[in-house]
């Protein structure tokens, strides 16, 4: 049974490792920005609640923060597709 499981076709190990790497790259790149956007928006809402008159400035900063954080996800996403070829 173990011998049967240990059998592999040529290139199978490489393909498997590539798939695992792709998953790690995209998984890592999606978790980070998800947490980051949560922190950015959460703090922006707190700031707007404390100082409503500054809402315009807070939203400007928040939007740019979201967009920059999103760039990290794009990095990981693109890299995952390039690794896969």
């Amino acid at each position: 049974m173990l011998q049967l499981l240990a059998q592999q076709a040529p290139g199978e190990l490489e393909a498997g490792l590539t798939a695992i790497g792709r998953g790690i790259v995209y998984g890592g790149a999606a978790i980070g920005p998800g947490i980051g956007i949560g922190i950015v928006v959460g703090n922006a809402i707190t700031a707007m609640a404390r100082q409503p008159e500054a809402a315009g400035m807070v939203r400007t900063t928040m939007f740019l923060g979201i967009a920059f954080t999103e760039a990290l996800a794009l990095f990981g996403f693109v890299l995952a597709f390039i690794i896969a070829g």
């Binding site: 500054a54 315009g56 400035m57 939203r59 920059f68 999103e70 760039a71 794009l74 693109v78």
Partner: peptide, 29 residues
């Protein structure tokens, strides 16, 4: 596609940031 995607996204953001950081009042206040 990947390089253009990332470079364009970041490039436009940094370009906009230049104007936003010039005045914290822009554009919301």
């Amino acid at each position: 596609l990947g390089i253009t995607l990332v470079v364009t996204h970041l490039g436009l953001l940094f370009w906009e940031l230049k104007y936003v950081s010039a005045s914290m009042a822009y554009p919301g206040l």
